[in-house]
Amino acid sequence: MSRPQPRKLIIIKKRQISPHMLRVTLGGDEISTIPEDQESGYVKLIFPNGEEKPLMRTYTIRHQRPTEIDVDFVLHEDSGPASSWAQNSKVGDSILIGGPGSKRMIHMPSDWYLLASDMTGLPALSVNLEQLPDSAIGYAVIEIINEKDKQPLNHPKGIEIFWLENDSPGEKPDALLNQIKRLDWLEGSVGIWAACEFSSMKNLRRFFKQEKHLDRQQMYISSYWKQGINEDQHKVEKSKDAELNEI
């Protein structure tokens, strides 16, 4: 099957979710080209780059409704092309969107669940929480920039939420792991879902594989970015990492 061609979507509205997260709602005549049931799937935002190849940046579909989708952007001082566009754009502006790509959901059914992310993974983690069965038990560990970045999350009552503050994202690669080590490891099979910075991801992966001896089929663990490099360079690093068969 051929990939769908990029389509032009229009900004319908913008809303500040927290000090460091901005929600952009996209719609327009071509929104119908995005199939149903794509929440937590990714899209590619395409930006002109002069005579060079266009820049593409990957973002999660946080919500999907019949005529619009929400995309959440983490805001920080060193804004890349996507977050800069999100901050500076206006209602009525357009953007080329590629995809959507595949969804990455937590392994179900499991006896219990453990989800972890920083703010880049929070949109996809939120969708996973919402789609867990009401009877689900476990934990979600979420790294945010400051306390005001906490969001209301829909989740089963048996999932306990832990918020970690880190005002220097990417500079404390053990933060998520250290919190997870403090949790009571529950009985039975666990479904793992984690998305965060590259070094943090590797620490989590090593812990789950070497200390908890989990099977790769129980886990989705991915890096969404790497400190100090852009998405194009991060993609190269991810490919090298995958070749080592550590996933």
Rank of each mutant, 00 (worst) to 15 (best):
P4V: 02
P6M: 05
R7K: 10
L9E: 08
L9P: 07
I11A: 03
I12F: 07
H20S: 09
M21P: 04
R23M: 07
L26A: 05
G28C: 06
D29N: 10
I31Q: 14
D37G: 06
V43F: 12
N49Q: 12
E51H: 08
L55W: 08
M56K: 15
R57V: 01
T58G: 06
H63S: 09
H63T: 10
P66F: 14
E68D: 14
L75D: 08
A82T: 01
S83F: 00
N88W: 00
K90R: 12
G92I: 08
L96Y: 05
L96W: 06
G99P: 04
P100R: 13
I106M: 07
I106S: 08
M108Q: 14
M108S: 09
Y113N: 05
L114H: 09
S117W: 00
S117D: 02
S117T: 04
D118Y: 01
M119L: 11
T120P: 00
P123Y: 07
A124G: 04
L125T: 05
L125H: 04
N128E: 06
N128M: 05
Q131K: 15
L132D: 07
A136D: 09
A140L: 11
N146M: 12
K148L: 13
D149S: 14
D149L: 13
Q151L: 15
P156W: 15
D167M: 05
S168V: 03
P173H: 05
L177N: 01
E197V: 01
N203P: 00
R205Y: 03
F208T: 08
K212W: 11
K212T: 01
R216D: 08
Y220D: 06
Y220N: 13
Y220F: 12
Y224E: 09
Y224A: 07
Y224D: 07
K226M: 06
K226I: 02
Q233M: 11
S239F: 00
D241L: 10
E246F: 04
